[in-house]
Amino acid sequence: MQLTTHTDYSLRLLIYLAVRDEDMPATVQAAADRYGISANHMAKVAQTLVQYGYIHSQRGRGGGLRLATPASQINIGAVVRRTENLRLLECFGPNSTCPIDPACSLKKILGRAQAAFLEELDGYSLEALVTNDDELRGLLARAS
């Protein structure tokens, strides 16, 4: 399974915010610069994460981005479910036009595989992804 760029950037932004040890909130531009990606894409990702309550965004002087909840309470499986289109095939939607849909073993197998993938991600919090926060912080500092 390949995750979309939006989900990838969502996870990256959450990691970035989780490992920061600065008092001031992070900016979209700083996060984008650290990863070498478009600030426009990162702004869209930040908007999504604000919408789902994972981060807070404050405008104006002294504003920026912060985690809305502790990293230990941000479940990776939940983030992926919210940011990813989990419809692997056309038949995973409500309006399947495939004539073999009711008897398709492939659909059942892919559905179980996807469920196993998400179940594995459910076992991890953002905190688990940043246990090496000193190393991550160093790598992100060098990337700027």
Rank of each mutant, 00 (worst) to 15 (best):
T69D: 06
A71Y: 04
A71T: 05
S72L: 06
S72R: 11
Q73M: 03
Q73L: 06
I74R: 00
N75T: 01
I76K: 00
I76A: 04
G77D: 07
A78W: 04
A78S: 12
A78K: 07
V79R: 02
V80M: 07
V80D: 07
R81W: 11
R81T: 09
R82D: 07
T83R: 01
R87D: 07
R87K: 05
R87P: 03
R87N: 06
L88K: 01
L89Y: 01
L89M: 08
E90M: 01
E90H: 08
G93S: 15
G93Q: 10
P94T: 07
N95I: 02
N95V: 05
S96W: 01
T97F: 06
C98F: 07
C98L: 09
C98D: 14
P99F: 10
P99W: 10
P99N: 07
P99G: 03
I100W: 08
D101F: 13
D101P: 05
D101A: 15
A103Q: 14
A103Y: 14
A103R: 11
A103D: 15
A103L: 10
C104I: 11
C104K: 09
S105K: 13
S105G: 10
S105L: 14
S105V: 13
L106A: 11
K107G: 06
K108R: 15
K108Q: 15
I109P: 00
I109A: 09
I109N: 07
L110K: 07
L110M: 15
R112A: 15
R112Y: 13
R112V: 15
A113N: 15
Q114H: 09
Q114K: 15
A116G: 08
A116H: 11
F117K: 04
F117H: 11
F117S: 08
L118T: 07
E119I: 02
E120Y: 10
E120M: 06
E120W: 09
L121V: 03
L121I: 04
D122I: 03
G123Q: 09
G123H: 04
